Simulated scan of single mutants.
Amino acid sequence: MMLLWDGLQVEIPKGMEPAALDRGFIRLTGSNMPTVSLRFGSEKCRFDPHRDGRRILRAAGIAQEALRMCDETWTKQIPGDLYRSNRLWVVQFSESRAVLAVLFSAPPPAGMAETILASLAWTPAEAWRRWRCYDITFETPPDYLLKTAVFQPGRFLLKFTNGRSELTFDRLAPANVLLTGMTFMPWCEQNMSRNLGRTIEMHRGSNTEVDMGARPSPLYRLLPWLPGQSPPLQGKARHIPEENKILILAEQGPLLPAEMSSRLHEKYAIIPSFKT
Rank of each mutant, 00 (worst) to 15 (best):
R155G: 01
Y134Q: 09
I136A: 03
K159N: 15
R132G: 03
G41R: 01
M16A: 07
A106P: 09
G30F: 07
L100I: 09
N32S: 13
P227G: 01
A118E: 08
Q190V: 00
A59I: 02
W131L: 01
E65S: 13
S217T: 13
T148P: 03
A110I: 12
W122M: 08
A149M: 08
T140K: 02
P124H: 05
I246W: 03
D22Q: 12
R87D: 11
I62R: 11
L38S: 06
A60P: 04
R238M: 14
N195G: 06
M16I: 04
G53K: 10
L146C: 00
R51H: 14
L247T: 02
L226G: 03
R129I: 01
V177N: 11
P241M: 06
R155P: 03
E139P: 00
A20E: 12
A125E: 13
I271F: 01
C70Y: 12
P232K: 07
M16N: 01
T123Y: 00
G235C: 06
R84Y: 07
F151L: 08
R55S: 15
T183E: 13
F156L: 15
A237H: 00
K76N: 09
W187H: 08
A175S: 03
R238K: 15
R164G: 08
S42P: 14
Q92F: 00
I116W: 07
W187N: 01
T115F: 00
T183Q: 10
K76T: 12
L179K: 05
G213I: 02
I26G: 02
R238S: 14
D143P: 02
E266I: 01
G181I: 07
A20Q: 10
M192E: 07
I271T: 10
G197R: 01
K147N: 10
Q252K: 09
F151E: 06
M185V: 07
G197I: 03
Q152D: 13
P257C: 03
E201F: 02
G80F: 08
D170E: 09
R164Q: 15
L233G: 02
A63R: 10
D71I: 13
E17T: 13
A19Q: 09
P257F: 00
E209W: 01
G15L: 04
H265R: 13
F274K: 06
K245T: 06
A214F: 00
A149F: 09
V99R: 11
K267S: 15
W225Q: 13
W5D: 03
W5T: 01
A60D: 05
A101V: 05
A237D: 04
D211Y: 14
Y134G: 00
E139I: 11
V90C: 06
Q234L: 15
M185Y: 12
I248L: 14
M212V: 12
